[in-house]
Structure formats: structure tokens, C-alpha cells
Design a protein around this nucleic acid. Structure first.
Length: 254
DNA sequence: ATGGCGGTGTAGCACCGA
């Protein structure tokens, strides 16, 4: 069983790449963020033709999340029942005995921005909902763009990023609080090469210079972490023409 | 210190992302 997450930065633009990636990497579940599509424009037929069922919730221009699955999905929930939010950033489904949650955590923009407060409140709301979901589902995976680099080793140049969103102590504390709920960062269950990231700015040839951050994560509850045999970042799609600025992260469960 | 790039909307640029 393979679970993956990918912030595609517009599914309209990236659909061919998603289909190509799935053809080469036929994962069981793929969580997408930043689809940027209203539900009436979601490419259901193309994704079903590739062998996947799909659940999605979107809006115009911003946000939007989806779960693609080779196996039946039930109990689909859109949004956080405990956090009123017009922004479409969460979707959950039960798949093959697991609870799978796809999350697009707010960016926060800047530490002095209202959006930063929204980000921290959003994460607090997520925590409360997750506590409930974990009580109901011992096998839970939450995949997505967390917009948090958990540690300095997840940042190409920690000094340059100090004082910025994605690395601030309150955001990192929020990430640790998720880990304190016995959710394991799948990537860190294994020895990994240094300086392996999941996002690189489009500007300044950041990808070529590996000026990136690891902000896309797969968190697994203990019964799933025990079964996890690998977690890799697939940099290949970031090298394609007209790429997303994020690249997929994949966890293998035995 | 700022903007760099890319996507979107409805436009001739402004906004947002990270």
C-alpha cells in the first residue's frame, strides 16, 4: 500500500503531469493540494479513466484539495467540523480500513500578518478534530502541505529563513503537538540523505541550487507507522517542464 | 530592502503563494 501527497499548484495546469506521474507511480492513494478548481470544473472523468476514484472540495483561484484512490472511499468529510472555514483545505475519507486526511495548511504569509494568526488557529482546530478522528480510527494517515519546516535540517539555509513563516517557533510547536498525538513523521522514520526538500521557489533557480524546504509531510498513527517500510521524496516531477513548485512525497505501508 | 517566478482572474495589472 502506497500513500502519496503532492501540492500541484493548479490541477488545471498540472493534470497531465499528475496522470503521467500516476502511470509511472501507481500509488494506492494520492492526496492533492492547491487544485484551484471549483467542483464543477474538477477533471473527474480523466482521473477515473486512470483507475482512480476521487473525492474533492475546491474553490476558485485558491486552495482546493482532493483524494485519489484505487480502492473504494467511504465516509468522505469536507472541512473541519470544529473549525468554520470558507477556505477549502481539508478532506477525509476511509480507505481499506484506514482514515486518510488530505490537508493544505495555510501559508501564513508573514509573522505580523492576520494570515499568520489564522494559520495558528487553523492548526489548533485541526488538532481538536484529529483527536476525535484518532479516537475513532486507530489507523490514520494525514498527508499534505503543512507549510511548516519542522526542524532546521528541513531548511536549506536556516539563518536566511529566521523570522519567516514556515520556520517560526509557534508553527514548529504546532507541528510537534501533532507528533505528540503519537503521529509519526514518516520521512523521519528512516535514514535520509541530507538536504532533501519537497518545495523549491520558482525564482533564482532555487531548484537547481537546491534552495528548498521540507514542508510536505505524511504523518502516520502508531499502527500505520509500524507498517511503514519506506518514505521517499520524488524529485523527478520537479524537473519536468512547467513543474509545480512542490514535488510528491510517498510512504510505503507493508 | 526588494523582488525574483508562476497561476489566477478579468486584466492590461494585483493578488497570493512559500
Amino acid at each position: 500500500m502506497k500513500l502519496a501527497t503532492w501540492n500541484v499548484n493548479s490541477l488545471k495546469v498540472r493534470l497531465p503531469q499528475v496522470l503521467q506521474w500516476l502511470a509511472e507511480n501507481p500509488v494506492d492513494v494520492l492526496c492533492l493540494q492547491e487544485t484551484k478548481l471549483t467542483d464543477d470544473k474538477f477533471p473527474v472523468a480523466e482521473i477515473e479513466a486512470a483507475g482512480y476514484q476521487v473525492a474533492f472540495t475546491g474553490q476558485k483561484t485558491y486552495n482546493g484539495v482532493a483524494i485519489l484512490s484505487r480502492h473504494p472511499m467511504t465516509e468522505v468529510v469536507k472541512g473541519n467540523p470544529h473549525f468554520e472555514d470558507e477556505q477549502q483545505r481539508l478532506i477525509a475519507a476511509s480507505i481499506d480500513g484506514m482514515r486518510v486526511i488530505c490537508a493544505y495548511v495555510p501559508n501564513g504569509q508573514a509573522l505580523d500578518s492576520d494570515k499568520y494568526g489564522y494559520k495558528l488557529r487553523w492548526l489548533e482546530g485541526l488538532r481538536h478534530w484529529l483527536a476525535e478522528e484518532l479516537a475513532a480510527h486507530d489507523k490514520l494517515a494525514i498527508l499534505g502541505d503543512y507549510n511548516i519546516a519542522p526542524e532546521d535540517r528541513d531548511v536549506h539555509d536556516p539563518a536566511a529563513w529566521e523570522g519567516n513563516v514556515l520556520v517560526s517557533p509557534p508553527e514548529r510547536a504546532a507541528f510537534r503537538q501533532l507528533q505528540d498525538m503519537n503521529l509519526k513523521d514518516a520521512f523521519r522514520l528512516f535514514e535520509q540523505p541530507d538536504k532533501l526538500f519537497s518545495w523549491w521557489d520558482y525564482r533564482q533557480m532555487a531548484f537547481r541550487r537546491n534552495m528548498g524546504l521540507r514542508i510536505d509531510h505524511i504523518l502516520l498513527s502508531a499502527p500505520l507507522a509500524t507498517r511503514c517500510s519506506a518514505c521517499v521524496i520524488d524529485k523527478v516531477p520537479r524537473k519536468w517542464e512547467q513543474p509545480s513548485d512542490h514535488t510528491p512525497v510517498v510512504a510505503t505501508l507493508d
